[in-house]
Design a protein around this nucleic acid. Structure first.
Length: 112
DNA sequence: CGCGTGACCAGTT
DNA sequence: TAACTGGCCACGC
């Protein structure tokens, strides 16, 4: 599929797939990387569309505060937390602890 | 073809 | 400090 046929959603899904295990990122960072810093909402919507897709680690995308805002879209509300903890990320109260420590910024990791 | 809405974010009031 | 607002894209009705 040609890049030009890629929708915003497609790009979001691609970036999400590149998130390393044990790392997390947020909606704004992905939106910014795609050149649409004001479209972080749409990134969230794109992840919603990605729900149920095993090839997309949607659980590694949290909001700016490290809050697992998308947890309710998984099969079970705590599934997202379990996946993250399994990757070595500590979570307390539906929120990622030491977010900056695990944060993965596509702008820096991909563009270098 | 128009309108409402949705896993958000940053700046203002 | 809390609440409000604009911005942005895709999709369903």
């Amino acid at each position: 599929m040609k890049p030009e046929t890629y929708t915003f959603f497609q790009n979001v899904h691609d970036v999400a797939r590149l998130i390393p295990k044990g790392r997390v990122t947020n909606y704004g960072a992905i939106a910014k990387y795609l050149g649409a810093p004001r479209s972080s909402r749409m990134v969230g919507y794109a992840m919603n569309a990605a729900a149920g897709d095993d090839t997309i680690p949607a659980h590694r995308v949290v909001n700016r505060n490290g809050l697992l805002t998308g947890r309710m879209h998984f099969n079970t509300p705590h599934h997202m937390q379990e996946l993250l903890e399994k990757e070595g990320i500590e979570i307390k109260g539906h929120q990622v602890i030491q977010l900056e420590k695990y944060f993965w910024d596509p702008m820096q990791e991909l563009l270098r």
